[in-house]
Design a protein around this nucleic acid. Structure first.
Length: 314
DNA sequence: ATCCAGGCTCCTG
DNA sequence: CAGGAGCATGGA
């Protein structure tokens, strides 16, 4: 193992001969801007993403086994490197996950045409050509992260997510340190509420996270099966669950499934962005955001995502 | 110090 | 059924 880690630091021209350095290449549909798409992930450095020596990494799971994936760009390819030996089945699953996560097959042109018809949205979108939403690898991970993020500022939410990963996620060796992968439902289901309140989750939120994890672990809730259902059916299925409101389902459809036409109108970030871009005197309410957002259909998710990008350091 | 964060539940009148 | 308190912490 020690020898393998040392070889990773060989000069670049020699790296390609290192047998265990598996490389996956995905050609995203143009236009694709790697810089714009990963910028927020670099900045985040939480929730499964981390940066070492200026390179972005993500922990993922394939066939139940945790991996660290290096994320890079070799035009016109997204290039992923795995510093571990990988079976063909694991390789296939990782590639499939990454293709979906980076929205690599989405045709942005119809969205850009739509955005041009809203003169206030158009410049925001034009400036971000090639930006794509980066999805979570599983619906479970997305749902739990979204619940944790309810009402909290992004920094604190990220801290709580990291603490949950440290507590319950499996570890994987990377370059001499041990990093965490997002825990599976059964590992979170095995926790007690007190385990999470100790991490400074509110009592309520600890209950939501663990109760939902138990439902998934016991098979009472089939999240991945929801991919085959319509937006409305997903909403109907999840809304009755304690801790899940409309905003949470909208975020799951958007960041979990990459559905193109969701509008999380209650979202404070979106409301701030709409206020700024549309020059409103005061912060718009949910209904006003929905009214303005009608002009973006059927691309409201993408408009939302681009507007978020416009107020978070963009 | 006070207010607010990528909401939701639950209680009150 | 509309409205509002409470949540847990940290940064502005």
């Amino acid at each position: 193992m020690k020898r393998m880690m040392r070889e990773v630091h060989l000069p670049r021209r020699l790296r390609s001969v290192v047998w265990f350095m598996e490389t996956l290449r995905i050609k995203p549909r143009p236009p694709f801007s790697f810089e714009r798409t990963v910028r927020r992930l670099f900045h985040l450095q939480k929730s499964g993403y981390f940066v070492r020596k200026g390179i972005l990494y993500r922990t993922l799971r394939a066939k139940g086994r945790p991996f660290v994936v290096e994320i890079g760009w070799q035009a016109p390819f997204l290039q992923f490197r795995i510093h571990q030996a990988v079976t063909p089945e694991e390789r296939r699953e990782l590639k499939e996950q990454l293709r979906r996560m980076f929205s690599a097959d989405v045709d942005l042109i119809p969205f850009y045409r739509r955005a041009e018809q809203d003169e206030l949205l158009a410049p925001v979108v034009r400036k971000r050509k090639g930006l794509r939403p980066v999805l979570d690898p599983t619906l479970y991970e997305c749902l739990i992260k979204t619940i944790i993020s309810q009402q909290l500022n992004l920094a604190f939410a990220g801290t709580l997510i990291d603490r949950l990963m440290q507590l319950a996620g499996e570890r994987v060796e990377f370059d001499g340190e041990s990093v965490c992968v997002f825990p599976t439902p059964d590992r979170v289901a095995a926790l007690s509420y007190e385990d999470l309140t100790r991490l400074k989750f509110s009592r309520r939120k600890a209950e939501y996270v663990i109760d939902i994890s138990r439902m998934v672990a016991e098979g009472a809730l089939d999240l991945e099966g929801l991919r085959r259902r319509s937006d409305e059916e997903v909403m109907e299925t999840l809304l009755p669950l304690r801790g899940i409101g409309r905003w949470t389902v909208e975020c799951l459809l958007l960041f979990g499934m990459g559905r193109p036409d969701l509008l999380p109108a209650a979202d404070i970030g979106l409301r701030r962005a709409v206020q700024k871009v549309y020059g409103l005197a005061k912060r718009p309410g949910e209904e006003e955001v929905r009214r303005i957002g009608e002009a973006w259909a059927p691309w409201r998710s993408y408009a939302t995502f681009y507007l978020w990008d416009a107020i978070t350091g963009g």
